[in-house]
Simulated assay, not measured.
Amino acid sequence: MDKITLRPFRAEDAPWLVAQHGALYARDEGFDETFAVLVAEILADFIAAHDPECEAGWIAEVDGRRLGSIFCVRLSGDIAKLRLFLLVPEARGRGLGRRLLETCMAFAKARGYHGMQLWTHESHRAACALYARSGWRLVSSRPVRSFGCDLVEQSWEVAFR
């Protein structure tokens, strides 16, 4: 991977993000179409109402080809939420996930958030290991039926000092 850049999310990235989330999660986890619908709703809300002073999204790309994404949105006055963290398979294992996560966390800290939260599934082992290495802690875990699958839903958080 040559010269990967992180650039701000643009509205025209939304269809790609919805398609990638839908295809990758269907292929890798057996998720049904309701997951892509959720991603589309999250992106539509972000495009329509995000506050650029305290919320941002990034797209990782090389030579104009998108490789991944991450978003920081306001959850409450002093807590941010990490959303839509994705890497295409060919971009994994090269430190790009860590770079995206560090960028998102640094943004949240710089905007005065005291911490962050995220929601994921236990099956995302590489991402969960990255969260743990980056100071996040697992705060809850429960079995659910979502997106046509039996999953173990997890909530993670990190406090900034």
Rank of each mutant, 00 (worst) to 15 (best):
D63R: 03
E90A: 15
M1F: 07
F31V: 01
V39I: 11
D45C: 05
A44M: 05
I4A: 11
G30E: 05
V37P: 10
P89E: 04
R10A: 10
E12D: 12
F147Y: 12
L67Q: 13
F31S: 02
D63L: 02
R111E: 08
G57V: 00
R125K: 13
S69Q: 03
E41M: 03
G112K: 14
F71G: 00
D63M: 05
R94L: 14
V39L: 03
P8Q: 15
L87N: 13
R94D: 12
I70V: 13
G68E: 13
E33A: 08
Q154A: 04
P8F: 13
S155R: 15
G30D: 14
A40E: 06
L6Q: 09
T34H: 10
F85G: 12
I4Y: 08
R137D: 02
C149R: 04
T5V: 15
P15T: 11
R92L: 12
A40D: 05
I59C: 05
L100N: 08
W136Y: 07
I47G: 00
E41D: 14
P15S: 10
A110V: 10
D63K: 01
D28E: 11
V88G: 03
L118I: 01
R66S: 05
F35Q: 14
P143S: 08
E61R: 03
R83Y: 12
V88H: 08
C149H: 12
R27N: 13
E102W: 11
R133A: 14
I79P: 06
C72N: 09
G22V: 06
F9R: 00
I4N: 09
A106P: 05
V18M: 14
T120C: 12
V73Q: 15
V39C: 02
D28G: 11
F147W: 03
G135W: 00
I4R: 15
A19K: 08
T120Y: 15
G135C: 02
E61A: 09
M116I: 00
K3A: 14
A108L: 02
A11I: 04
H50C: 01
G93A: 11
A127D: 04
